[in-house]
Design a protein around this nucleic acid. Structure first.
Length: 271
DNA sequence: TAAAAGGGGCGTCCGACTGA
DNA sequence: TCAGTCGGACGCCCCTTTTA
C-alpha cells in the first residue's frame, strides 16, 4: 500500500476519522473557484491540523492504493478458497478468524469432521477484514451488482454468490445503522482507508507497510470482527462516529465505471 | 458476587425467484 | 441459461437477566 502522508507526520486516528467523515459527507460542495481546490479546502477544514495540501496528498494516497491494486502491483493475499484445505490456509493467513476455525478443525479432528451435519450444510467461513476491504475496493471499481467481476478481480477467495450474499447483508447493515443495539461487525468498515488500517497484516507485512500509521487507528486494537480474536460487543460509537454511520465511504468514480455511493460534488482525483 | 440460562444479534449458506 | 436478488435457516457468540 502507498504510505499515506509519508512526507509529514502520520495521521492520527482522530484526523483520519475526521477526514473520512468529511469525505463521507461529501464535504461542502465548492461554490466558486477551482472545484477541486475548493473541495480539498473543504476537506481540510474538517481536519484543522492539516493543510489543504496534506489533505490532498492523503486523499491521493488512498486513490493510489486502489490504483495499485487495480494494476496488480499490490500482491493480493493468497486464498485457497477453491478446495477443502482453504479453511486452514485462510485461517493461517487471517489470524482474526482463528477462533471459529479452531473449533471447526477441532471438530474435524475429534472425529466429527465430515459428519452428516457438515455434509448437509457447509459451515460458513467468516469473512476477514482483508476480504471485506477487497470487497469494498471491488465495489468501488465495478459498482454494485457486478459481483462476478468483484469476485474474479478482488475477492478471489470468494465466489460471486458469496460476494453477493455478503453485499446483501452489508447493505442491510448499512440501512440499520440507526438502530440502538448493535454489535460491532466487519460491516462497520465502510471505507477502504479505514479498513486498510484496521486490517491485521494478512500478508505478514507490518501495518505501516499496508498504509496504516504505527499503532493503527482503531480505538479497540485487535477488533477484527465477530469471530475474530477481538471481543465483540464494543459500543459502536467507540470506533465509529455517527456522522459516518450509514454513509458508505467509497473512492471517487473512475472513468469507465459508475461511482458507487459517492457524495455529490466529489472531484476526480489526479490521474 | 459469580455462574447459568435465555434472548437476540450477526454472518454465512442455501434455495427460490426474477430479469436480461 | 445465467447472474443477481431476496428471504429464511442455521450456527455461533455476546449481552442481559435470573438464580443460588
Amino acid at each position: 500500500m502507498a504510505s499515506q502522508g509519508a512526507a509529514t507526520a502520520a495521521w492520527t486516528n482522530e484526523e483520519d476519522k475526521a477526514f473520512e467523515n468529511a469525505v463521507a459527507a461529501g464535504a461542502p460542495p465548492p461554490l466558486d473557484g477551482p472545484p477541486e481546490e475548493c473541495w480539498f479546502a473543504a476537506l481540510a477544514a474538517s481536519v484543522p491540523a492539516r493543510s489543504t495540501e496534506e489533505v490532498r496528498r492523503h486523499y491521493e494516497a488512498l486513490v493510489e492504493d486502489v490504483g495499485a491494486i487495480d494494476a496488480g502491483r499490490v500482491p493480493l493475499p493468497r486464498y485457497a478458497g477453491e478446495d477443502s484445505s482453504s479453511a486452514a490456509a485462510t485461517a493461517a493467513a487471517a489470524p482474526g478468524k482463528d477462533r471459529r476455525e479452531d473449533r471447526k478443525s477441532f471438530e474435524s479432528d475429534s472425529g466429527k469432521g465430515c459428519s452428516k451435519a457438515e455434509q448437509e450444510r457447509r459451515k460458513g467461513i467468516p469473512w476477514t477484514e482483508e476480504e471485506h476491504r477487497l470487497f469494498l475496493l471491488g465495489l468501488d471499481k465495478f459498482g454494485k451488482g457486478d459481483w462476478r467481476s468483484i469476485s474474479r478481480n478482488f475477492v478471489i477467495s470468494r465466489t460471486p454468490t458469496q460476494v453477493a450474499s455478503h453485499a446483501q447483508k452489508y447493505f442491510i447493515r448499512l440501512n440499520s445503522m440507526n438502530r440502538d443495539r448493535r454489535r460491532s461487525s466487519i460491516h462497520d468498515i465502510t471505507s477502504i482507508n479505514n479498513a486498510a488500517q484496521a486490517v491485521p497484516p494478512i500478508t505478514g507485512q507490518a501495518p505501516a507497510a499496508l498504509g496504516g500509521p504505527p499503532g493503527g487507528m482503531m480505538k479497540h486494537p485487535g477488533m477484527v470482527g465477530m469471530y475474530g480474536g477481538a471481543p465483540m460487543g464494543h459500543p459502536v460509537a467507540g470506533h465509529m462516529v455517527p456522522a459516518a454511520v450509514g454513509t458508505p465511504v467509497m473512492f471517487p468514480p473512475r472513468p469507465g465505471h459508475p461511482p458507487y455511493a459517492m457524495p455529490v460534488g466529489y472531484p476526480a482525483p489526479h490521474q
